[in-house]
Simulated scan of single mutants.
Amino acid sequence: MTTSNELRLLPWSGPEGKPCYLSTDDPSGYMSRLADNIEAVQLDEAAELMAAALEALDEQEADPNDLRRLGHDLACALRDVLRVASSRGHLLKASGFHVIEL
C-alpha cells in the first residue's frame, strides 16, 4: 500500500462532497486506470465547454438564462480541472518531480 502522503486524490467526490482517495501499489490497476479515464473525460469536457463559452460570449444577443447555465457549467468544469491538477501535481511530487506551487 502507499503511504498516507502518496494517496491519490480521485476525480470524484464521496458522500456530502468529501474528497475520495486511492491507496495502491499498482498505478496501472483498475481503479487507477478508471481515475485516469475519468480525468481525461473531465479535461475533454472542460475544453469543449470553454470553446462553447467563447462562442457564446461573442454572441451579442445571448439569452441571459443560457449565460447563467453556461456560468454554472464552467464553474463545475473548473472545479473538476482543479481537482485533476491537484491530483496530478501530488502524483508528480510523490514520484520525485519538483512541482512549483502557485
Rank of each mutant, 00 (worst) to 15 (best):
A52H: 08
D66C: 03
L78M: 00
P27A: 08
R83W: 06
P15Q: 15
A62T: 03
L78Q: 06
R8E: 08
S13G: 12
A46E: 05
V41F: 07
Y21V: 01
F97D: 14
D25E: 14
D26M: 10
L91K: 06
G89I: 05
E61M: 13
V41Q: 06
A56R: 08
K93G: 02
V41A: 02
W12D: 03
S4I: 09
V99L: 05
G89C: 02
L67N: 02
G29W: 07
S86K: 09
A46W: 02
D36S: 09
G71M: 00
S32A: 15
S28A: 14
R8G: 02
L78S: 03
Q42V: 01
E59N: 15
A75P: 03
S4W: 09
L54E: 15
C20T: 08
W12A: 06
V41Y: 07
T2E: 13
E16D: 14
A35D: 04
G29R: 12
P19T: 07
D36R: 04
F97M: 13
L70T: 05
S23R: 15
K18D: 07
C76L: 13
S23E: 15
R33A: 11
A53R: 12
L9N: 04
D44Y: 02
M1N: 10
T2N: 15
A94C: 13
S86P: 01
W12H: 10
A77M: 09
P19V: 09
Q42D: 08
